[in-house]
Computed example of a mutant assay.
Amino acid sequence: MIKFPVKPVVKWAGGKTKILNQLSKYFPREYFNYHEPFMGGGAVFFYLFEEIRNKNAKAYLSDSIEEIINLYRVIRDDVERLITISKKHIYDQKYYYNIRSQDTAELDDIQRASRTLYLNKTCFNGLYRVNSKGQFNVSFGDYTDPVIVNEEALRNASRTFQQAELYAGDFEIVMKNARAGDFVYFDPPYVPLSPTSNFTGYTSGAFGFADHRRLREVFSALQERGCYVMLSNSNTEFVRDLYRGCNIKTINAIRAINSDASKRGSIKELVVLSYPDHKCQFGHPHLQFNLRSGGIKSCL
């Protein structure tokens, strides 16, 4: 079977590329299909692709950001036309704001995908943020000759998406297809560490505490179904309490975006597992876990 390098085709604030070496040891050793309801840049999916392909398994990928899912569908179904159209873009501030101001309702799917790709590659820090009307409003980014069209990366991504189902919508869509023995990875907008670090407004409706509690219920339902469930989130008391009784790990991540430059750099994040260590890629079955009594069903 021919191997080819696969990596994210968009920049993504909070993407997992730089911490895959830490996350990967907690992936389950064995699983059937793969589900990622907060697709974003898809670093974990691309990392797992060869394994998914070798299993002849399927990936179910979704996100609430319709423009990102549309981009991935176009990459899957018509990557060559996307490449051709996107090569016409130029890195220029005035041009950027003209493209940003376009009404997506007047564009076809390929034009929308090309617009999303361009904005992602040239906006500030690869952020995805919209206003109350759902309009993308991230400012122009200051770069030196940014690569807007990476043909090899786009074509390789197109090959990976042939084995994927792509959905735009709420994370609860995972309940439709997840079965016992499947691996589900949740990477939601993080619970803010402080009022000034709230970056949950990716869509016009921010992902709030009620959504995190709803996600916890889905996490538990998937566990009861027999899925291997893994979740990333911030190292906060709220998250630790919400997932008390689960197998919680602490990892080091790099936080590049913060209004306070002194707070950028290494930071602790949590990885929550519904399964014990001996089910992980590199398990330590001798470790003991504390079970939660009452409330939401315990993980372990």
Results as ranks from 00 to 15, higher is better:
4 F>V: 00
6 V>D: 09
7 K>Q: 15
7 K>L: 10
8 P>Y: 13
10 V>N: 13
14 G>W: 01
24 S>V: 06
25 K>N: 06
28 P>T: 10
31 Y>P: 05
35 H>N: 07
35 H>V: 08
36 E>T: 12
36 E>L: 08
38 F>L: 03
41 G>D: 13
42 G>L: 11
49 F>Y: 15
49 F>Q: 10
53 R>L: 13
57 A>H: 06
60 Y>C: 00
61 L>C: 03
61 L>K: 05
61 L>M: 02
67 E>M: 11
73 R>H: 11
76 R>C: 10
77 D>H: 12
79 V>R: 12
80 E>P: 01
80 E>T: 02
81 R>Y: 11
82 L>Y: 13
92 D>A: 11
95 Y>G: 04
96 Y>F: 15
97 Y>G: 04
99 I>Y: 00
101 S>V: 04
103 D>L: 12
104 T>E: 15
105 A>D: 15
105 A>T: 14
105 A>Q: 14
106 E>G: 10
108 D>G: 07
111 Q>T: 08
112 R>F: 08
112 R>L: 09
117 L>I: 10
117 L>S: 04
117 L>C: 06
117 L>F: 06
118 Y>H: 00
118 Y>V: 00
118 Y>G: 01
120 N>V: 11
123 C>I: 07
125 N>V: 05
128 Y>H: 15
128 Y>R: 11
128 Y>Q: 09
132 S>L: 13
134 G>H: 06
136 F>N: 05
137 N>M: 06
138 V>I: 10
139 S>W: 02
145 D>V: 10
146 P>G: 05
149 V>L: 12
150 N>F: 12
151 E>K: 13
152 E>F: 09
153 A>F: 12
155 R>I: 14
156 N>E: 08
157 A>M: 14
158 S>K: 08
159 R>D: 04
159 R>N: 07
160 T>W: 10
160 T>A: 15
161 F>S: 06
161 F>C: 06
162 Q>Y: 07
167 Y>L: 03
168 A>H: 13
169 G>Q: 08
170 D>R: 07
172 E>G: 04
174 V>T: 07
175 M>W: 02
177 N>G: 09
178 A>S: 15
179 R>H: 12
179 R>C: 12
180 A>R: 15
184 V>W: 06
185 Y>F: 13
186 F>R: 02
187 D>T: 03
190 Y>N: 00
192 P>F: 00
192 P>Y: 00
193 L>F: 01
202 Y>H: 05
204 S>I: 10
207 F>A: 04
208 G>L: 08
209 F>I: 05
211 D>K: 14
212 H>Y: 02
213 R>N: 12
216 R>S: 14
222 L>M: 06
225 R>H: 00
226 G>K: 04
226 G>H: 04
227 C>A: 15
228 Y>T: 07
229 V>Q: 05
229 V>D: 02
236 T>Y: 01
238 F>I: 04
241 D>F: 08
243 Y>C: 08
243 Y>G: 09
246 C>Q: 09
252 N>F: 07
256 A>E: 09
257 I>E: 07
258 N>F: 01
258 N>S: 11
265 G>W: 09
267 I>S: 14
270 L>A: 01
271 V>W: 05
278 H>W: 14
279 K>M: 15
280 C>W: 04
280 C>Q: 05
281 Q>G: 02
282 F>N: 11
282 F>E: 10
284 H>P: 01
288 Q>T: 14
289 F>G: 11
291 L>C: 12
293 S>F: 13
294 G>D: 09
294 G>S: 09
296 I>Q: 10
298 S>N: 14
300 L>K: 07
300 L>S: 03
